[in-house]
């Protein structure tokens, strides 16, 4: 009906054009980076590459992938992403439910939610955190990548707000059927909030996949690095002022091409996750079905 009006059709055309332009603006720099990653060192170092590789070369990828640590680092990353995301989702899911209650129903939720926010805003910094990690014997352990960041306050608050959008009738019906809080949460809230959980999952996956500083700091050597940390260490920052020189090494490296290749090696898996999660964003899919 509405989409048949003339004005709306005009809007649709303009909208499509705007979206195409925006997409192009986003993709062109990436094409450039991709082109650089496939170019020869000489061309890249001379800044001669625009949108197509100059003197096609796989050197940059080879340099990264040839490292024996590489494959293992992917495994570490997959592990931390899967376990880390699973844990974060579970914790957020469980915490968001009580927090989404009114204060009149659940006395104490205000205290809890302020406590959550407080920990998000304030931090004691790296030193005490490092000491805690050490006292817990998490140093050089896989779990240091997963446990400290397990509670993501930001995501918990988001999910809590999504929960509030769930019609009260659903919950009340469950209570009347004699369901407790846990059953309501897992059998009523879980299916209807799949789109929100997909969003959370995406954020969490991206976070875990891209985190590198913890790996660098808490792992005692590169054998246990996750991919993001490993890639970080492939890039060489040439700070000549404090470095002794070995020209051989210069000849072997081009910061530009390796930097560029690194982005694609590092981001590709996450890019692939997105379309998969997208199907949960299809509008109203779940809500509609529950209603009937």
């Amino acid at each position: 009906m509405y989409h048949k009006t003339k004005a709306y059709r005009l809007f649709s055309v303009i909208n499509t054009i705007v979206l195409i332009i925006l997409s192009l603006l986003c993709i062109i720099p990436l094409i450039h980076v991709l082109a650089v990653s496939f170019s020869s060192k000489a061309a890249a170092d001379a800044n001669l590459v625009s949108l197509w590789p100059v003197n096609f070369s796989l050197e940059a990828y080879k340099k990264t992938i040839d490292n024996p640590v590489f494959l293992h680092s992917i495994w570490v990353s997959v592990k931390r992403t899967v376990i880390g995301t699973g844990l974060t989702l579970l914790l957020s899911f469980m915490a968001a439910y009580p927090l989404s209650k009114e204060n009149s129903v659940f006395k104490g939720r205000n205290f809890y939610s302020w406590l959550f926010v407080f920990t998000m805003i304030f931090s004691g910094g790296l030193v005490p955190f490092y000491i805690v990690i050490q006292k817990l014997h998490l140093m050089d352990s896989f779990w240091v990548l997963v446990l400290p960041g397990a509670v993501n306050v930001y995501l918990t608050i988001l999910l809590m707000n999504f929960f509030r959008g769930i019609p009260k009738e659903l919950e009340e019906a469950a209570f009347i059927d004699g369901a407790g809080h846990f059953r309501t949460l897992f059998s009523i809230f879980l299916p209807v909030s799949l789109p929100s959980i997909a969003t959370l999952a995406l954020f969490s996956v991206v976070f875990h996949w891209n985190s590198w500083f913890d790996g660098l700091l808490y792992m005692n050597n590169s054998k246990s690095f996750p991919l993001a940390t490993f890639l970080q260490t492939v890039i060489v920052q040439k700070d000549m002022s404090s470095m002794s020189i070995n020209p051989k090494e210069f000849e072997l490296l081009s910061q530009k091409t390796v930097n560029a290749a690194q982005i694609f090696i590092g981001a590709l898996p996450v890019l692939l996750v997105y379309p998969f999660l997208q199907k949960y964003f299809v509008k109203g899919l779940v809500m509609g079905s529950v209603k009937e």
Partner: peptide, 8 residues
């Protein structure tokens, strides 16, 4: 005792 890749 430990090693760290010296970046950043």
């Amino acid at each position: 005792l430990w090693s760290v890749t010296d970046t950043n």
